[in-house]
Nucleic acid binder design. Sequence first.
DNA 1: AAAACGATCTACT
DNA 2: GTAGATCGTTTTG
Length: 214
Amino acid sequence: MKPLMNERTFLTEAFYHRAATTVARELIGKILCRRTNDGLTSGRIVETEAYLAKRDPASHSHRGKTNKNASMFGPPGRAYVYPIHARYCFNAVTEPEDVASAVLIRAVEPMEGVDLMQSRRRRTRQLELARGPARLCEAFAIDRQCDGVPLTSPEQLWIADDGLRLSRSRVGRSPRVGVTSARESLLRFFLRDCRFVSPFRPSASANPGVKKTQ
DNA sequence: AAAACGATCTACT
DNA sequence: GTAGATCGTTTTG
């Protein structure tokens, strides 16, 4: 496990202050880091999905600001964490304040704190530990208390850059773009342009719950 | 206070 | 590939 976590390389607000699709693509290969009383966990981001502010009916911000999606309307570089199906999903807020776009982190490849992750989830194969937006939240102990926390300082939750460079062309749009709900089925067009995967994504095979659309 | 709702997961074929 | 589980949160009566 080679790359040492240099906390001075964390991404700052300027990184997130750009188009959600750009941030989604560039987050591939970066390192999600989390520190709790239990210790440090980190992992390579291998799959992301942008949720656009306007004209994207799948975005939680699409029908305006509410208590629950408020942090999406806040400044970029903060967490938007939101409960679903008895678990949680983690987003990084992007673009200027009030635009309300965000990037969902869909999968991470565990690096540090694997034992801790395995104790938080039930013992699972390493590549399965944090593959899936709700799985990674469980592995990293991310819940509603993280909603709104800044990602722009290496304290409890941040994203680091260890210098790995993936060529733009190798960061592809997801070949498995699909639908996970009836509502999402209306959104194939958007998904096609908003999901990104790492060429080094673990387990190129099944992604449960995702159906083919073509 | 009860019911409905998920940007999902697991187990199993 | 899919059925059934899951439970915190919001919505409804």
